[in-house]
C-alpha cells in the first residue's frame, strides 16, 4: 500500500515552532497529551480497519463455519473467490456495471463541460438563474422525481434495460456542472480574451484553452461519477431489478442472500470483489480523489 503524501505539512500544532524553554511540568503534560492523542488515533484506525479483516476472514471460511462463533478460518478456503463466479453470474454483473459506469461517466463529461463553461465564462442573461437551478437540482433527493420518471420509461418500454440509468447522464449532471464551474472560474479571463483575439470561436476556446487547463477537474468528475455509478443501488434496483440479465453488482449482491439462502462466505467474497475496481481506481488516482473531495467542500 503506497502512502499518501499529505497535501500540506500538518503543522497545526508544530512543537518545533514553540519556544524551546518550557518548564518541566508543562513539557511533560504536552508529551502526555500527544501520546494520548496518538494512541487514540491508532486505536480508531484499528477499529476502522477491523471490519475489513473480519470480512476477509469470513470470506475464507467454509459455509458451515460462518455460523459458528469462531473468528479464525479452520482451513483457508481461497477457492471461495473463484467459486463465487460459478455460484452467481458475477462476471455478467461486472460487465453490466462497467457499461453503466463507463457510459455514465462519458455522458456526464460530454454534457456537463459545455454547460459549466457557459455558466462560468460567458456573459449572458439568465446565467445566474441557471446556476441557482443547477444547485437546486443538486440538492434534490432522487426519490422526488422517481414516480413520473419510472412511468415515463415504462411507457417507452425501456424498463428492464440500462437505458433509463445511462441516458440522463448525457443531458447534464448537476453536481458535476457545479464542480466544473467552480474550477472554470479560476481560469484567468485574459487567456480566453487572447484566444478570441486570435480568432478562436467558443468551441475552439473551450477545447484548446480551457480543457487542457482543467484536466484535474475533469479527472475528479470522472472518478466521482464512475464510483457513484459503480456503487449505485436504487436506480438499478428500480429499472433492472426485474430483469436479472441486466443486474449490476450491487443489485446482484443484495439478491444473493435471498436467492441462495445463507452463504455468508460467498456473499463476503463477492462483496470484497465488488470493491476491487474502485479501490484500484483510488490507488491510481489518489491525488485526484483527495483534491476533488476537498474542492467540493472548500469552495463553500
Amino acid at each position: 500500500m503506497s502512502v499518501l503524501a499529505p497535501s500540506r505539512r500538518p503543522t497545526a500544532v508544530a512543537p518545533e515552532t514553540r519556544p524551546r524553554k518550557l518548564r518541566g511540568r508543562g513539557r511533560r503534560r504536552r508529551w502526555l497529551e500527544s501520546v494520548a492523542e496518538r494512541s487514540l488515533l491508532i486505536a480508531l484506525a484499528f477499529i476502522v480497519l477491523m471490519p475489513f479483516v473480519l470480512i476477509l476472514l469470513t470470506s475464507l471460511m467454509t459455509n458451515a463455519q460462518t455460523l459458528s462463533p469462531h473468528l479464525w478460518p479452520e482451513d483457508f478456503q481461497w477457492h471461495n473467490f473463484t467459486d463465487v463466479f460459478a455460484r452467481i453470474p458475477l462476471a455478467r454483473y461486472a460487465a453490466n456495471t462497467f457499461l453503466y459506469a463507463g457510459l455514465g461517466t462519458v455522458g456526464t463529461l460530454l454534457s456537463s463541460v459545455p454547460a459549466a463553461y457557459a455558466m462560468a465564462k460567458l456573459r449572458w442573461r439568465g446565467r445566474h438563474v441557471w446556476l441557482l437551478l443547477t444547485v437546486a437540482v443538486m440538492m434534490l433527493p432522487a426519490q422526488v422525481t422517481l414516480v413520473p420518471l419510472y412511468s415515463m420509461w415504462a411507457s417507452l418500454g425501456l424498463v428492464g434495460t440500462l437505458a433509463p440509468l445511462i441516458v440522463p447522464f448525457f443531458f447534464g449532471h448537476a453536481f458535476s456542472i457545479f464542480l466544473l464551474r467552480q474550477f472554470f472560474l479560476t481560469i484567468p479571463q485574459e487567456y480566453l480574451e487572447a484566444a478570441r483575439i486570435d480568432g478562436c470561436g467558443e468551441l475552439r476556446t473551450l477545447l484548446r484553452v480551457v480543457l487542457p487547463l482543467t484536466r484535474p477537474a475533469l479527472a475528479a468528475v470522472a472518478v466521482f461519477q464512475f464510483t457513484f455509478c459503480w456503487n449505485d443501488f436504487m436506480g438499478p434496483l428500480l429499472y433492472v431489478g426485474n430483469n436479472d440479465s441486466n443486474w449490476t453488482i450491487p443489485v446482484g449482491l443484495a439478491q444473493f442472500r435471498s436467492t441462495y439462502q445463507v452463504e455468508w462466505n460467498m456473499t463476503m467474497a463477492a462483496s470484497l470483489l465488488a470493491a476491487v475496481p474502485v479501490v484500484v481506481l483510488f490507488f491510481f488516482a489518489q491525488k485526484t480523489f483527495v483534491r476533488g473531495i476537498a474542492l467540493t467542500g472548500v469552495k463553500g
Partner: peptide, 25 residues
C-alpha cells in the same frame, strides 16, 4: 497521509457490500 487513506478506505466499499458486511459482523 497513511491515516487519511485508512479512514477514507471504507467509503470506497459499495454501500450494498458494506451493509451486508455489517449484517454479518
Amino acid at each position: 497521509g497513511l491515516l487519511r487513506t485508512v479512514f477514507y478506505l471504507p467509503h470506497l466499499m459499495p454501500l450494498v457490500a458494506a451493509a451486508l458486511a455489517f449484517v454479518v459482523l
